[in-house]
Design a protein around this nucleic acid. Sequence first.
DNA 1: GGCAGTCACTATCATTTTGCAAGCGACTCG
DNA 2: CGAGTCGCTTGCAAAATGATAGTGACTGCC
Lengths: 145, 145
Amino acid sequence: MSSDENNLGTCPVDRGLMRVGDRWSMLVLRDIERGLTRYEQLRTSLGIAPNILSRRLSALVETGLIEKKRYSQRPPRDEYLLTDAGRDFLPILMAIGAWGRKYNGAGTLSRHLDAATGKAVRPVVVDANTGAPIGSRPLHLEIPG
Amino acid sequence: MSSDENNLGTCPVDRGLMRVGDRWSMLVLRDIERGLTRYEQLRTSLGIAPNILSRRLSALVETGLIEKKRYSQRPPRDEYLLTDAGRDFLPILMAIGAWGRKYNGAGTLSRHLDAATGKAVRPVVVDANTGAPIGSRPLHLEIPG
DNA sequence: GGCAGTCACTATCATTTTGCAAGCGACTCG
DNA sequence: CGAGTCGCTTGCAAAATGATAGTGACTGCC
């Protein structure tokens, strides 16, 4: 693990990846956002083994990205919903999607359209201070002493 | 795997994660951006086992995110540099970092400062069309038929 | 020239994680 | 009652990961 108390422990990227740093977790979040909130829906959509899905879901619940909510008593049925933390992660998935489209996007892919304008969303990471895309201005890394 | 020919194959997120969908790959990219471009630097910084690092590096080279470049003949020394694809992924790491800081950011963490203004960068994912943060406007998912 | 030391790995093996397949309990519907 | 669905769990095989040791190419220093 890199979660020692060295300089890596001070890296926010590391902190983020501690909670969602695997493929399945991210794909689960993506699918929940799509409206696939139930176990069986997720399993068939992802093509994931049931034990793995169970484990991922409990891990995501435990780390507070999703929550399990009973929406029917009889029959007992639960659905998995995004928490604030989970919802906040979605833009990152969009950014990953934009990157995947650019560099691994052969064929037709699904995309998000702005509901108002109907235009395809083009996710870009910018600095909220300047509005400039990350990478367009020189940065400096500050490491706490 | 979820890379079947169903609707998931059309998902750009999936496409992106196929190439960098694991913790170590992302941390390697982060470290290379920090200037840790040599094998030994990466190994000690990450605290990763050498065989694992080798495999990750070759995988990243193979998928075109980094390239191995000889910078000294005698002694023979290589460094790993980001390709365009790799550099394009960095903003996503910044966004993950911002998320990690927000939801798992106890203690003091490293951060990026804008070299010109000196202010801490605040990465946000926006729609390049509208400039609005993703999540602030209703979207609609379009899946190719 | 010989020897310690660094760098960039590879090889071997234990441990952990992932994945497949089968099964199970609760319930509904006919 | 019997078949079917949903949401899992259990067992076991396969694959990935990780710890440790070792190796080859070279440098730099007596």
